[in-house]
Design a protein around this nucleic acid. Sequence first.
DNA 1: ACCTGAACACCGTTCAAGT
DNA 2: ACCTGAACACCGTTCAAGT
Lengths: 228, 228
Amino acid sequence: MPARRDRERLPGRTGRPPVTSRAQILAAARLLIDRDGWERLTIRRLAAEIGIGATTLYHHVRDKDDLVVQLVNEYVDQVARPELPDDPRGRIIVAWATIHDALANWPLGAEVLTADGFLARLGDSALWFAETIVAGAVDYGCTPLQAVDVFRSIWYYTVGEILVRAHTDSRRADVGAADFDFSLRDLDPSRFPQLAAIGDQWPARASLDIYPQVLAILVDGLLAQATS
Amino acid sequence: MPARRDRERLPGRTGRPPVTSRAQILAAARLLIDRDGWERLTIRRLAAEIGIGATTLYHHVRDKDDLVVQLVNEYVDQVARPELPDDPRGRIIVAWATIHDALANWPLGAEVLTADGFLARLGDSALWFAETIVAGAVDYGCTPLQAVDVFRSIWYYTVGEILVRAHTDSRRADVGAADFDFSLRDLDPSRFPQLAAIGDQWPARASLDIYPQVLAILVDGLLAQATS
DNA sequence: ACCTGAACACCGTTCAAGT
DNA sequence: ACCTGAACACCGTTCAAGT
């Protein structure tokens, strides 16, 4: 009887054979995102890409959120863990910079992870980053709860930066860039003198990447406040 | 002849009479959001609420994005302009805190405004806040372009904070709060010592409002860096 | 066990036709 | 000038039935 139970539990031994797998689904999803952009990832398109019925996907992922979380986890697994400096402050900055760069081209991941409790859905690789950041703050002199504040504040900034830039880029790609080179030129200089003076220099300035500098400001400020 | 042209331009004088108006649409949208939540605002539901065909709305708003932008502008019109302190730093902080509080219950607004070029779509009231912030940075000693950095960095943080909190709240409301009181309790303490130590204290800590403190840190750090 | 099509309950948006 | 229903091109998800 044990033999029988084992046989029944072996995959693919009984019933209709699988036409796909978790691995194939995730690979197809990444291909779809790379080719068509993250906003085109839908359950139906993904199924069509693989060549299966849309409803079949629900035997391998709980729902679309779950799919994206699995995608993020798989992606983070492949991100090399950075070499960490000795000082706690440096460790926090390196860990965040790595997360930011990894997620920068994955706004769908950032969007899903706007949900609170996202930490509980992350895999070991992503948790390693979280542990590194929290431990860095504690090593610096924060209490564990202050370390939560540090983590959370930088998370807000990071997710905001990624989402704004993602929406900017997708719009620019959609329509001609010229249409969205918004300008403050037409503004009434008597009522909005500074904005009018900046005029159409805004877009170029806003396209500069200042994440690293602002990250350093946030880390320094948060650590200083917690340990003062 | 001038009389004739004037008569023809008078609203409601010719053709089928309007069944609704921009003002009624915006009022109904606000009611819908207040009653059912911002994630339930759809063109079709809004039309049903007013009692008109969904397609009729398109004679009064360009598309859904435009509707939300108009909603935000109308909302900001009603937000009282705060009394501003004399020092530039204080002006920046008061302006941001006011925007944050206004938008905190309007995540749909924050979402739409993740699109770059959002400044160009804002009305006079919202632009007044932007001008106040940029002018504050310039008065402090920043160049106009550095003031753009200041504005943009805090915008990222603010929008991230609002979106994360919005998604948290809507989930908590949907399902029983217990299901989403995520815990780091089950984590392996040997691999994630700090996270495991925090355990289920995380949600309570993360629900604290630390926006004002982090705002001050950002403003001070950004101004210091720009003028150093 | 696993897969499937049909179906449900929605979206935003366009457009020819009507008043 | 304004409104309308029908239609287009989609979504995520459930579920009874099939292999």
